[in-house]
Design a protein around this nucleic acid. Structure first.
Lengths: 249, 249
DNA sequence: CGACAAATTGATTCAAATCAAACGTAGTGG
DNA sequence: CCACTACGTTTGATTTGAATCAATTTGTCG
């Protein structure tokens, strides 16, 4: 059975066979031989929460697929004020093509596993596979859409709406046990209150207050500070402020 | 002389010869014959300020190069709150590949001239020219960087810092008479106070107050509500809050 | 000139920040 | 095992920056 599968998927590296990045990520663009070539240079890493993956103004020498966990992308002002400008979930592609130096900071928010490639390998792949560039473009445009959604949240939503929008976004991405109908959801928050506040442009005290407010109103339940249960997603959606940052695509 | 130039640039459509989009925009990726093919389907338009170019949730049937003027990209919540999520200057490429329906609204902020192409022509070009897709990717990544810069401004800067950052960004993009050394600048604001407030996530009253404050402090001068002179750029930069959204790349 | 929209300025209110304290919860070592 | 520390979180009291409400003033255009 395994043998026959190997015949069918001839040329696809064994490691890549079950990989999410091949199904939904950038590797899905590659032909078996391209994939084999790339896989030769790849390495897998398990990262502890809190570890910095790419430093601000640091040279970028590798690119990675996020295989599991959550990576936070941050930018800081010189006086210490910080803003999270993006979150990456599996199977997002991590790294900024064309720029030698990163202008953002990437850090493991949870335990993270990565499949990393040297810069040169990715650059070669971009030259030889138009389909790969195509896929990178798609991911970049999706990230751009997301960034713009959050600009609305940051600029125009109230604190209660911001927190509700955040929970909704996490529920839709982490999604441990959400049926597609998505009447209810239960998930682990991938970050601390302080991180959430840096994502929403508010203080951790305000995040805490809004979470208790949602809890008091019976919209969510919280266990161990991290585990959140949403009984009625539509109830949560109604707390996000008018359609926009929360619209179903 | 003109004749000889025609020989040198054989195949490049006459209209495209002086075009900024060929020098710095997406058309720069194209070989003469690709360019000729695309040019056949192109049409030029002059748009009045305030005209909507792409409606929210509207089908996108054409893509354009911005040849002059400023286009604002907005998103709105259902109760009317609005956020400008991007500004496009020449020679930016306007339109969202891969998405049938636009999730944002594009509107001419100033008088705008466009070079437009039917959807099908751009899609064909993306299939036949990897270099073109490459260029689209570069532009998308630049827009992503900009969006993230503004997320920091929206989430973490004070009202005075927001207004200063906005002026600096405009000065660097409009740039009517700025020497590269950029000691001083003078430019026309491409939008109303209300638009600026929608860009910065504050009210127009606050924008107005901060502009007067900058004027009182001698950082800027304002004529006719629209024409702004910055005598010392570094003085303005110091008002933008720590390095970050205003960093020189 | 008159009319309308855009911008400024002032007075007041309010949402969220700040300051401050207490309360878990997890991990460490005696 | 429990005291002890450290960190993250919650909760409370107070302050404050920007929003809101409300007039004027300025600029633009028919």
């Amino acid at each position: 059975m395994t043998l026959r599968q190997d015949i069918h998927s001839s040329g696809i590296p064994v490691l890549c066979l079950p990989c999410e990045a091949r199904r939904r990520g950038v590797c899905g663009a590659l032909e078996p031989d391209d994939l084999a070539q790339l896989a030769k240079t790849s390495s897998r890493h398990n990262i502890e929460p809190g570890v910095e993956l790419i430093g601000d103004a640091e040279a970028v020498d590798c690119y990675s697929n996020v295989l599991s966990g959550v990576v936070k992308l941050t930018k800081s002002l010189s006086d210490g004020r910080q803003q999270i400008v993006g979150l990456q979930f599996a199977p997002d592609f991590l790294g900024r093509p064309f720029k030698i130096k990163s202008v953002i900071n990437a850090e493991a928010a949870t335990a993270v596993s990565l499949c990393s490639f040297p810069r040169a390998a990715i650059e070669r792949m971009m030259k030889q596979s138009p389909e790969f560039v195509h896929r990178l473009l798609k991911q970049a445009l999706n990230e751009l859409d997301e960034a713009r959604e959050w600009m609305v949240t940051l600029g125009r939503k109230t604190a209660p709406e911001k927190v509700a929008s955040f929970l909704l976004m996490i529920a839709r991405n982490i999604d441990s046990n959400v049926d597609p109908a998505a009447r209810s959801a239960c998930f682990e928050l991938p970050m601390t209150r302080a991180d959430i506040s840096d994502f929403l442009g508010i203080t951790n005290e305000t995040v805490s207050r809004q979470l208790t407010s949602l809890r008091m109103d019976g919209v969510i339940r919280i266990e161990n500070n991290r585990r959140v249960t949403v009984d009625s997603m539509s109830r949560l959606e109604r707390r996000c402020g008018g359609r926009g940052a929360t619209a179903v695509e």
